[in-house]
Amino acid sequence: MDTKTIELNGQPFMLRSWGRPDLPPLLMLHGFPEYGGAWGDLAPHLAARFHCLAPDQRGYGQSWAPDGVGNYALSHLVSDMAALAEQFDAPLCVLGHDWGASVAYGLAMFRPDLVSRLIIANGVHPVPFQRAMAAGGAQSAASQYINALRASDAVVRFSADNFALLEQFFRHGMGVDWLSEDRMQTYRTEWARPGRLQAMLNWYRASPLVVAEPGVPRTDLPELPLDRLMVRCPHLLLWGLEDKALLPESTAGLETFAPDLTRVEIPGTDHWLHHQKPEAVAQAILDWLAT
């Protein structure tokens, strides 16, 4: 793995990479509460095929972390990664997990000139996800944690006792045998950088998506420009069925927005499939690319 600081839109970002620079680029976008180093399990299995590029996204790790919720609107997050893609051989293949999937979808939808293929690992397109979260059913119940992360006292609560509550969030209901104490300490180090936890939580606060109370459907939903939310490139959705945060209903109807969609389940995994079975995830990606 190589590391360097690069400039995107005039600001510093940490970038990790695996594989030879003359290979086709693969942009790997992490989610919450991870950082670019979280791809260290998967990237070595793809490095013979790709130059794997894993930035710390805005507000995370060693990258730029501006103050203010407005700085974490999706348009800004997408602009960062568009600037990164333009420094390499675009259009390129983009892989996103969790919140990184939202940015990856944003690139594919709003900068289709930069994305040749889209791979999502347990992440969601905004329209199916919003519909599921607003329905008041199982996904609404599973998404109640979002309200806790948006709360005004979230930084204090989730950082107390050496990030005990954030660690509990990380581990709750998931298969985290991969999360050793040494690795957990690495995450704590990243979370403890000045202003980072506030910035990470601002991703949730800046999102317009609405979470219904269980059993109480919501109809006051944000206006979503459906005609602009199409994924027109080939799209692979990798899924760990044991995910407790994102349920299968959160991807219902995705084919409407991604007509060239391939779904692949990775058995025995949940939200952290890229850590639990990196070889299987890599093989699914390579098999799909070969079709």
Rank of each mutant, 00 (worst) to 15 (best):
Glu167Gly: 13
Pro112Arg: 07
Pro194Met: 14
Ala160Phe: 07
Gly136Arg: 08
Ala101Leu: 02
Val155Thr: 14
Asn147Met: 07
His76Arg: 08
Glu86Trp: 06
Leu197Met: 14
Ile120Met: 00
Pro194Thr: 13
Met81Arg: 03
Glu181Ile: 06
Arg157Gly: 03
His97Gly: 08
Gln130Cys: 01
Glu86Lys: 11
Gln185Lys: 00
Trp203Glu: 04
Phe129Glu: 03
Phe163Tyr: 15
Cys93Thr: 10
Arg171Cys: 14
Trp203Phe: 11
Ser152His: 04
Ser180Gln: 00
Gly175Thr: 14
Glu167Asn: 13
Glu167Arg: 11
Phe163Pro: 09
Asp161Gly: 03
Phe169Leu: 15
Leu201Met: 15
Asp80Gly: 10
Gly96Ser: 03
Ala83Arg: 07
Ser180His: 00
Arg188Val: 05
Ser116Gly: 10
Gly96Ala: 00
Trp178Ala: 11
Ala138Arg: 11
Ala154His: 13
Glu181Gly: 00
Phe170Asn: 08
Arg131Cys: 01
Gly96Gln: 03
Met109Val: 01
Ser143Arg: 03
Ala134Asn: 01
Asn162Tyr: 08
Gly137Thr: 00
Glu181Ala: 13
Met174Tyr: 10
Thr186Asp: 02
Arg111Val: 04
Leu77Lys: 06
Cys93Ser: 08
Leu197Asn: 15
Trp99Asp: 06
Met109Thr: 03
Leu107Gln: 00
Ser102Val: 05
Asp98Gln: 01
Gln168Ile: 04
Ala141Thr: 13
His76Gln: 12
Tyr105Ile: 01
Ala121Lys: 09
Pro126Asp: 07
Met200Pro: 12
Gly96Cys: 04
Ser152Trp: 02
Val115Lys: 06
Asp80Gln: 11
Gly173Asn: 05
Arg196Met: 11
Gln185Pro: 06
Gln144Thr: 14
Leu165Gly: 10
Ala85Cys: 11
Gln185Glu: 07
Leu107Cys: 02
Leu92Ser: 06
Ala83Leu: 12
Ala121Thr: 06
Met133Asp: 05
Phe163Ile: 08
Val155Trp: 10
Pro194Asp: 13
Asp98Lys: 06
Asp153Ile: 10
Val127Ile: 15
Phe163Asn: 06
Ser79Ile: 05
Met109Tyr: 00
Gly123Ala: 01
Ser159Glu: 15
Ala142Pro: 02
